[in-house]
Amino acid sequence: MTEKQQPMHGLLIDLDGTLYHGTHRIDGADTLISYLREIKLPFRFVTNNSSATPEEVAGRLMKMGIQAAAEEVCTSAQAAAEHIARLKPGAAVFVVGEEGLRKAVQEAGLVLTEEQPDFVLQGIDRSFTYERLTKAVRYIHAGATFVLTNPDLLLPSTDGLIPGAGSIGAMLQAAGGKKPILIGKPSTILMDYSLREIGLKADETWVVGDNMATDIAFGAAAGCSTILVLTGLTNAQNMDYYMEQAGCKPTTVCHHLEELRSYISDHREI
C-alpha cells in the first residue's frame, strides 16, 4: 500500500499501542529503538498523554527496557503550554489536569491560577470533580479561551478502557458552549511542535502509529508519510473500517515491529 514516497530523515513515533500496552512492552520495541540509535535516524516519541512529564514518560519506557531520554519526548501538555504562551505570554491558566500539564504550564512561563483565568486548559484528570467542572464551565462562559490537550475519548489500561481527556472535554464543550482549541493528534499544533523539536520538515518526516484517527490522520494532514503498525488499536480485521472512518490511508502497513524495522532499513535513504 503506497500513496507517496518521501525521504525518511526522521520518525515521530506513537507510544501506547505502538511500543507498549499499558505497562507491557510490545515485542520488538526495544530492538527497534536500539536500531534507530545505531543508524542515527532522528526520532521523537509523540504522545497525546498530558498527565506525565517528559521525564516520567522516558522513565516508563526505560523500565520496559526501551532506551529513552526526556528530550526525545513530545507531549500534548508541552505543545499546549507553548501554544498558549505564543498566544499570550505570561497568561493566567486554570488547569483541569494532572502534574504533567501543570508543570508544562509553569515551564512555559504561564501562571497557574484558580481565579479569573485567561485560559481553561484541560487534559486527562483522574481526580476530576463536579466542583472542578463547575469552575471551568463558569470561566469559559466568562470569556476564558478553552484549550483541550487531546480528543481521546477512551484510553487503554491494565484493567480495561477508561475515559480519556476527550470525554471530559465533551462535558466542558457541552456546558461551556464553546469548541476548544485542540492541541494533540490529529491537530497540527502538536505536529508543528514535534517538527520543531526534531528539526525537520513534514515532507522529511514519517509518522508511526497504531491509530488511524489520531496517528495516521495526524501525519497525513501535515503532509508526512505514515506507517500504520497493527500492534494496538488497529489490526488486520478492523483495518479497512478504521481507514474508512479516518478518511485517509497510511503510506504503508507493518504487521509487527520487526517488519517495521526492516521497512525502515529499506527506505530510510529514499
Score class of each variant (00 low, 15 high):
residue 53 T to E: 10
residue 98 E to V: 10
residue 176 G to F: 01
residue 84 I to F: 00
residue 142 A to L: 10
residue 150 N to V: 01
residue 86 R to A: 10
residue 250 P to I: 13
residue 152 D to I: 02
residue 135 K to M: 10
residue 64 M to A: 06
residue 71 E to P: 07
residue 83 H to D: 00
residue 84 I to L: 01
residue 262 S to Q: 14
residue 73 V to L: 07
residue 208 V to S: 06
residue 259 E to N: 10
residue 31 T to Q: 13
residue 185 K to L: 01
residue 58 A to W: 05
residue 118 D to L: 05
residue 13 I to N: 02
residue 39 I to C: 12
residue 16 D to N: 11
residue 95 V to M: 08
residue 20 Y to S: 04
residue 44 R to W: 10
residue 156 P to A: 09
residue 16 D to K: 03
residue 201 K to R: 14
residue 96 V to H: 01
residue 185 K to W: 01
residue 157 S to G: 09
residue 195 L to V: 05
residue 45 F to T: 03
residue 92 A to N: 14
residue 232 G to I: 09
residue 87 L to V: 03
residue 23 T to K: 11
residue 20 Y to R: 09
residue 144 A to N: 04
residue 160 G to N: 08
residue 98 E to I: 09
residue 232 G to H: 03
residue 109 G to C: 09
residue 122 Q to M: 13
residue 127 S to E: 13
residue 134 T to R: 13
residue 183 I to C: 01
residue 35 Y to I: 07
residue 100 G to W: 10
residue 53 T to Q: 01
residue 148 L to V: 00
residue 215 D to G: 01
residue 255 H to L: 11
residue 263 Y to L: 13
residue 77 A to Q: 02
residue 52 A to D: 14
residue 89 P to S: 11
residue 103 K to E: 15
residue 11 L to W: 05
residue 92 A to D: 15
residue 238 N to K: 10
residue 67 Q to M: 13
residue 118 D to I: 04
residue 65 G to N: 07
residue 162 I to W: 06
residue 117 P to D: 05
residue 239 M to G: 06
residue 6 Q to S: 08
residue 152 D to K: 01
residue 219 G to E: 04
residue 249 K to S: 13
residue 74 C to W: 03
residue 198 I to D: 02
residue 3 E to H: 13
residue 35 Y to Q: 07
residue 114 E to H: 09
residue 268 R to H: 15
residue 9 H to C: 14
residue 128 F to W: 15
residue 21 H to C: 07
residue 106 Q to E: 15
residue 110 L to F: 03
residue 121 L to Q: 05
residue 43 F to W: 07
residue 255 H to K: 13
residue 26 I to Y: 06
residue 78 Q to V: 03
residue 109 G to R: 03
residue 244 E to F: 07
residue 210 D to P: 13
residue 203 D to I: 03
residue 18 T to D: 10
residue 215 D to S: 04
residue 217 A to V: 15
residue 177 G to Y: 01
residue 2 T to E: 14
residue 258 E to F: 12
residue 166 G to M: 05
residue 169 G to D: 00
residue 91 A to Q: 02
residue 202 A to Y: 01
residue 59 G to C: 09
residue 44 R to L: 15
residue 95 V to W: 04
residue 183 I to H: 00
residue 24 H to C: 11
residue 262 S to F: 08
residue 112 L to S: 07
residue 261 R to N: 08
residue 201 K to D: 15
residue 36 L to V: 06
residue 75 T to L: 02
residue 250 P to D: 13
residue 63 K to L: 14
residue 111 V to A: 12
residue 38 E to S: 14
residue 17 G to V: 11
residue 168 I to S: 00
residue 78 Q to G: 01
residue 45 F to K: 07
residue 175 A to R: 09
residue 15 L to P: 00
residue 68 A to C: 10
residue 186 P to D: 08
residue 185 K to T: 00
residue 31 T to Y: 06
residue 233 L to N: 11
residue 96 V to I: 15
residue 93 V to D: 06
residue 79 A to M: 00
residue 270 I to D: 07
residue 122 Q to N: 09
residue 57 V to M: 09
residue 60 R to M: 14
residue 143 G to T: 08
residue 161 L to A: 14
residue 90 G to P: 10
residue 238 N to R: 08
residue 259 E to H: 12
residue 184 G to F: 00
residue 258 E to W: 05
residue 5 Q to E: 13
residue 21 H to G: 08
residue 142 A to M: 13
residue 259 E to T: 14
residue 97 G to N: 07
residue 205 T to E: 08
residue 254 C to A: 11
residue 52 A to Y: 12
